[in-house]
Design a protein around this nucleic acid. Structure first.
Lengths: 346, 346
DNA sequence: TTGTTGGATGAAAACGTTTGCGCTCTTCCG
DNA sequence: CGGAAGAGCGCAAACGTTTTCATCCAACAA
């Protein structure tokens, strides 16, 4: 199981210098056809595989980018990962995927590691929403030395290109949809209030209410604090145990909505009879739920590939305006969980 | 945005040699406390981040492993990814996740790339089931030069440690469950027949039938050829259009079952009244489907962490029997999609 | 005083590539 | 035939670490 063959070994076997062997295999510089053949044959015999570390050191580029997402088990992020990978592949680059588990600390750890590995750039769905929380990071890593693109979430005050979906508009549309169905008490479960994407969604929700002259009741908006199934369950339960229960509920994240379903089932509430429901981010099983789920669908694929392309632009020295915000439209997919119902006098 | 600070820069600023600076920051060798402080201060001022490439070159270890899975969007694999990551983290290693998209070609491309990056080892859910198909790969990469552990699927004839779940037993249990409910015509949708995991599941299904003296009807087993939602849809449709439709259906993969649901809905068939259903791999939404879905749940977390630990053992020169097969038990989670029903005389 | 430790340091060699430079040799033009 | 051009190739210097080895110096025992 000895050590791997090196360029030196190949050169020796082919009877050339290391330089020529490198040129023959690497496709740079000039080599005679006959020499190239000898080298290639030798390489095959020795099972030669170039050492990417050494190459990267010399070339000062790793042809690798990093991608830090909140939680790979969230299908929204999984789709982003795939989209970024396929987009990046076209530039002959690789992607290192990291999972921050929605913790600022992990996120920075990963960012640091990626920096140490000298990736050419990173795409991050930032866990914090204010530069304050990651001030050292922004100086040290994001935008300091590292080409960075933010995805899914913006960071206030950071001068970094960002690709997001239009959370305000989407929440506005979802809320209006409920209002037009006659709902007046509309609850909202948000992930972490502090996340930029979440504040946008709350804002859209608020605006839609005000527009239709419904007072914005702070107590109907519950912060699940965490972004996960468990958190969604507890937040929903808390909301349902209020004395005057909402007739409709918008759950602003993929995993939270599962938790919400758990809570609703436990309470024996019917959808949409007792309470109507809108989730965030579509998923394969959504049309097959007991009541097919109405969702706000974010363009995950487009977000991923556009972010990747921005990063590749920056990598090729094309300057990209650091205050660039690309905002993509979400769409409301209406299914039965928010369908019309007959109102008993309330 | 100039180049990153190097150890040389730090040494110069601290007034020491490169060697001492390295010792101070790297925690190896002996340094006087005072010197260390000077170096650390200098490093902080210069925002020094060690170059992992250079370090790895010298140390001949990257503290990184590769993980190649079939499809990151399949929640079963997503869970494996997470499990491997958390397990590997305990060894101060990183994980590079690759998505083979269930194609042998992509898988080998990724394996080669990982080899070039000199990862310390790889965990692979192999796309092919026979050494034949990846003969070059097994020589060049898996088991050739690279520490390898297979996960989820075994490869016949490959002498490589493998962690799988007991597919035969699980399929046997699921099928028997159906038989005990009175079903006699039980259909099966498999992913790619050639996949080792799939042959195991078919075998378990077959044995259960024979045990109860039900003839094994080849035409009830449909190979979806691909492992994806679309493939599941087409395969199920094909099966349903047979003249004598089955009364129960086992769908042996996470994504296929969604496709099956699509097909069933399109045909207007009720679950379990018209056709009972068992899926493979649990998912968050499964209990909330129109009819909560009975599934075979594989221990994805355990598989991931055990595979990781095996690999780490091998990495630390501990010899691991290459024919080691670790087989973990799956469990049948019974929900309503396979519940008892009243039989009209058939 | 002298010899012996041993801790702290620096010089320099590796790790495996890529690449600038210079050398040789052929070819081709005037 | 003289000389320019340029293809083909090798030497050696990088890239930024870690590590071996030698050196220096203080401390200490004889």
């Amino acid at each position: 199981m000895g050590p791997l063959a090196t360029l030196g070994d190949v050169a020796q076997r082919a009877g050339t210098s290391v330089a020529t062997a490198g040129r023959a295999l690497g496709g740079y510089g000039k080599v005679a056809a006959a020499t190239r053949d000898r080298v290639v044959a030798a390489a095959r015999q020795l099972n030669y595989h170039p050492n990417a570390l050494a190459r990267s050191m010399k070339q000062r580029s790793t042809f690798t980018i990093g991608l830090i997402v909140g939680n790979i088990c969230n299908s929204f992020f999984a789709r982003i990962v795939r989209a970024v990978e396929t987009a990046i592949m076209r530039y002959d680059c690789k992607v290192i995927v990291c999972d921050s588990d929605e913790s600022v600390e992990n996120e920075l750890d990963h960012a640091r590691t990626l920096l140490e590995h000298r990736v050419d750039g990173i795409i991050v769905s930032p866990t914090a929403s204010e530069t304050g929380e990651l001030s050292r990071a922004t100086k040290e890593i994001y935008g300091g030395r590292m080409l960075t693109v933010f995805i899914d979430r913006a960071v206030k005050g950071a001068r970094i290109p960002t690709v997001v979906s239009d959370n305000v508009a989407a929440a506005h549309e979802a809320t209006t949809h409920f209002i037009e169905l006659g709902h007046k008490r509309i609850g909202a479960i948000v992930g972490r209030k502090a996340l930029d994407s979440m504040t946008g969604r709350i804002e859209g929700y608020r605006r839609a209410l005000l527009e239709r002259h419904i007072t914005f009741d702070e107590s109907l908006v519950v912060d699940a604090v965490d972004v996960g199934v468990e958190a969604g369950y507890h937040a929903t339960k808390k909301l349902l145990e209020r004395n005057h229960r909402p007739t409709a509920l918008i759950v602003m994240n993929n995993l939270l909505v599962i938790g919400a379903l758990n809570a609703l089932k436990e309470k024996g509430l019917m959808i949409p009879g007792d309470i109507a429901l809108i989730g965030w981010d579509d998923f394969d099983a959504a049309p097959h739920l007991q009541k097919p789920l109405t969702v706000v669908e974010q363009p995950a694929d487009a977000m991923g590939s556009i972010a990747a392309e921005q990063l590749m632009k920056m990598r090729s020295k094309e300057t990209v305006d650091p205050s660039l915000h690309i905002v993509l439209k979400s769409t409301l997919i209406i299914r039965e969980s928010s369908e019309k119902r007959i109102w008993k006098k309330s």
